[in-house]
């Protein structure tokens, strides 16, 4: 059973359609990434999913409970970590957690054992008496996660959870999320980071309030399979020009020490041959031309430009 079921969600602000007929199903053990450019509607979608906003149309069911009809039960199944989650710097780790547990309605005799358990889980057990303001960025994030999980939710929503965090810390954070997935929790994250999205079991790409495409990272990347060439050599400005002039090259993207070319479907060999010839004529040194696996970003940029799949 899908723990998160959103059907035909629509929300507009004045004339702006922020979310437009969006449907989403996430099962226990799945982590779903919502990615998309600024203003695509990611944050509004997250707010609709957690009940912070009411949709104009459509409905949300969390763990089987309708968010509009049985809000208390639905919310009881929901853990939410907002982008700037509010910790009280003056309170200790345990006091923060107690506050969030009590707000969540955990009875007196339960908050302490549950808090200890969850702090053990996120690895903050030894810092219970430290003030939240004295925690490092990664530890604050873990405390935020602990606060979101204190009432055993089966649905977890994370709004841009690891922006700017040390990759070492991020690694630790993902380990925690994986353990939650093993326990059958359904997770949705919103993120502007493609590398973060590519770690999720499924990815939905949003633009202008709609889901443009959805699938596993492999499925999505396969849409451009064989259509991305990496070119190295010098002088790279000359190589770039040569590439741009090729009729079957759709897009040229400069990286620090190489070019990535997006090609028309099935044109890989022809383009490579033509590039070599043109480089020789121009006196440029073409070191290497090879096909590379397309990344999510390649596919999404192509999708935004309206390039058909091949």
């Amino acid at each position: 059973m899908a723990l998160i079921e959103a059907e035909n969600l629509t929300k507009s602000f004045g004339n702006v359609l922020a979310v437009d007929g969006l449907s989403l199903h996430v099962e226990g053990g799945e982590i779903y990434a919502l990615v998309g450019p600024d203003g695509a509607g990611k944050t509004t979608t997250m707010r609709l999913l957690c009940g912070a906003m009411e949709p104009d149309q459509g409905r949300v069911r969390l763990a089987g409970y309708d968010l509009a009809r049985e809000p208390d039960r639905a919310r009881n199944e929901l853990g939410y970590l907002p982008q700037r989650f509010s910790l009280y710097g003056e309170l200790t780790v345990l006091e923060n957690l107690r506050f969030f547990a009590e707000v969540r309605g955990l009875p007196r005799d339960q908050w302490l054992p549950r808090s200890k358990e969850i702090l053990e889980f996120v690895g903050l057990a030894e810092f219970v008496d430290r003030r939240a303001e004295a925690l490092s960025g990664g530890m604050k994030q873990k405390l935020g996660l602990a606060a979101a999980l204190v009432h055993h939710p089966r649905v977890l929503l994370l709004d841009e959870p690891t922006g700017g965090v040390d990759p070492v810390t991020r690694q630790g954070f993902w380990q925690l999320v994986i353990r939650l997935l093993r326990q059958g929790v359904a997770v949705v994250i919103s993120t502007p980071y493609m590398d973060e999205a590519s770690r999720c079991t499924r990815v939905g790409f949003m633009n202008a309030g709609r889901l443009l495409m959805e699938g596993t990272p492999t499925e999505i990347a396969s849409r451009l399979a064989g259509r991305v060439l990496a070119v190295t050599g010098s002088p790279w400005r000359v190589l770039e020009q040569i590439a741009r002039q090729d009729p079957e090259v759709e897009d040229v993207r400069a990286f620090g020490d190489r070019l990535h070319l997006r090609l028309r479907p099935g044109s890989g060999r022809r383009v490579a041959r033509r590039l070599r010839r043109a480089a020789r004529r121009a006196g440029a040194d073409l070191e290497g031309v090879r096909a590379v696996d397309p990344g999510l970003a390649d596919v999404f940029l192509a999708a935004l430009e309206g390039v058909p799949d091949g």
């Binding site: 190295t232 990286f255 620090g256 020490d257």
Partner: peptide, 28 residues
């Protein structure tokens, strides 16, 4: 930048952590 993928755009990249410059070279 703190975007790992973004550093690929640069000719050379220095990797900083905890005040130390761990390495600086081309991404490749």
């Amino acid at each position: 930048t703190h975007y790992m993928d973004e550093a690929e755009y640069c000719n050379r990249v220095g990797v900083m952590r905890r005040g130390r410059l761990l390495a600086m070279d081309t991404p490749t």
